[in-house]
Amino acid sequence: MAITKEQIIEALEEMKLAELNDLVKAIEEHFGVVAAAAVAAPAAGVADATPSEVSVLLTSAGTQKVQVIKVVKELTGLGLMDAKKLVDGEMPVTVKANVKIEDAETMKAQLVEAGASVDLK
């Protein structure tokens, strides 16, 4: 007679946490697998924990302000004076808001290469 899923679940409910841990280790060893926590899809109406868009924040212009100003000008499409005002202003300052994560990472890399300190939020 085969054991049913319900019988297995009932047996697991009666086990202590340490016994369950030992069981998982034994199953991993026997089948040559590693148990990983399942990631459930978010319920409808619940926001995803990972945002799809972020803001690029300049936290410090560093010692090479001219280079940072040039990169900010290029990234934002601002004129030279407006880019300078942005970089010379109070930190942290938003360089660009609501940017796709991949684009934000590229922008961050360009700014860091120019000598700036950048955060993504």
Rank of each mutant, 00 (worst) to 15 (best):
F31L: 10
T94P: 02
D103W: 09
Q67N: 15
D103I: 10
A104S: 05
E6T: 13
K84T: 09
K121Y: 06
A47M: 02
H30N: 11
L23S: 03
M91I: 08
A41C: 05
D48Y: 09
M107V: 06
E29N: 13
M81P: 00
E105G: 01
S60E: 08
A104I: 09
K84R: 14
E102G: 03
A11V: 12
K85Q: 11
V87D: 04
Q110V: 03
V39F: 00
A35I: 15
G77S: 02
M1G: 12
K70E: 11
L120N: 05
E74P: 00
P92V: 09
V72W: 04
V112P: 01
V99A: 01
A104W: 12
A116Q: 12
A11K: 15
K121S: 14
L75R: 09
V72I: 11
E29L: 14
K108G: 01
I3S: 01
T63A: 10
M91K: 15
T94H: 01
L111I: 03
M107Y: 15
A37F: 07
G77N: 07
V33Y: 14
V33N: 05
A18P: 11
E113K: 15
K73M: 10
K16H: 14
V34T: 15
P51V: 11
G115S: 07
N98C: 03
D82V: 07
T63E: 13
A26I: 06
V34C: 01
D103T: 14
Q64R: 14
I8R: 13
D48F: 09
I9D: 05
E6W: 04
A36F: 11
E28I: 06
A37M: 14
E19P: 13
A37Q: 14
A38T: 13
K108W: 07
Q110C: 01
V95Y: 12
K73Y: 02
A116L: 04
L75T: 01
G79P: 04
A35D: 01
E53W: 03
K25E: 14
A47L: 13
L80N: 06
E105L: 13
L57K: 12
I27L: 15
E28K: 07
P92D: 05
G32Y: 13
L120V: 10
E113Y: 04
M107K: 02
V72T: 05
V56F: 09
N98W: 06
S60R: 08
V46H: 05
I101P: 04
T50K: 14
T63K: 13
E28D: 04
E74H: 09
L75I: 10
A11I: 12
A83H: 04
A97R: 09
E6P: 00
A61S: 15
V93F: 00
Q67T: 10
V34N: 11
M1T: 12
M91S: 12
K5T: 11
T63N: 06
T50A: 10
L80S: 06
P42K: 05
M81V: 13
L111F: 06
K84H: 07
P51R: 09
Q110N: 11
A116R: 10
A11Q: 13
M81C: 00
G77W: 14
V39T: 15
A109L: 04
V93H: 02
D82P: 02
E19T: 08
G45H: 05
V34L: 11
V33G: 05
K16W: 10
V66N: 00
D48V: 02
A26E: 13
G79Y: 03
Q67H: 12
Q110S: 12
G79N: 08
E13F: 02
